[in-house]
Computed example of a mutant assay.
Amino acid sequence: MGTIKPDKRSVQTAKVDRPLAAPAQRALHKLGEDLNRARRRRGLTQQSLADRAGVGLSTLRRLEAGDPRMQLQVLARVLHVFGDIDRLDRLMDTGEDDIGLALMDEQLPKRVRPRKGPHAF
C-alpha cells in the first residue's frame, strides 16, 4: 500500500470572505466615483489612464466601481498619474490623528517630578 497524501485544501485553512461593513462599502464606492470624475475632468479615457498607470483596463474599471478587492498599489499608480500622490501620503498622518492624539493625551501624567540620582537633568 502507498501512502495517502492529504489534500492541500483540507490542510490549509479555508479563506472566509467576510462582508465589508456598510460604511467601508460606501467609502470605496465614493472613492471610485471620485476617481472616475477626476479622470473625466482631466479629459482622459479609461484606457489612456490605465495605460499611463500601468494597469489593465478591467483593473481600472474595478477601481472606479469601488471594488473592495483592489490593491492599494493600483490606487497609488492612479493618484501618481493625477499628480495627487501626496494625498495618499497624508491619508493616515499621525500628526493629524485627532483620536490617537487625544488617547495619548489621556495617558499623560498629571505631574512630572524631577528624577533623583546622577542622571537627573
Rank of each mutant, 00 (worst) to 15 (best):
Q107R: 12
Q107M: 10
V112T: 15
D98T: 13
L88V: 11
D84H: 01
K110L: 06
R111W: 02
I99H: 09
E96L: 08
R113P: 05
D97P: 09
G83T: 08
P109H: 01
E106K: 00
L91E: 13
R90E: 11
K110F: 01
L91D: 06
D89P: 02
D86E: 15
R90K: 02
D105N: 13
I85P: 00
G100A: 10
R87D: 05
I99F: 15
K110C: 06
E106R: 14
T94W: 00
D105W: 00
D97F: 14
L91H: 09
I99T: 10
I99D: 06
D89L: 06
L101F: 02
E96H: 15
L103T: 08
M104Q: 15
D86Q: 03
V112Y: 01
L88F: 08
T94E: 08
I99P: 01
D86V: 01
F82S: 10
M104L: 15
G100T: 10
K110N: 15
G100H: 14
K110T: 14
R113F: 07
D97A: 15
T94Y: 03
G95P: 08
T94V: 13
D97Q: 12
D86L: 02
G100P: 10
I85H: 03
M92K: 05
T94I: 01
D97L: 00
D97G: 11
R87H: 08
D97M: 06
L103M: 14
E96P: 00
R113L: 07
G95K: 15
L101C: 02
L108P: 00
L101M: 06
D105G: 13
L103G: 00
L103P: 01
D98C: 00
M92F: 15
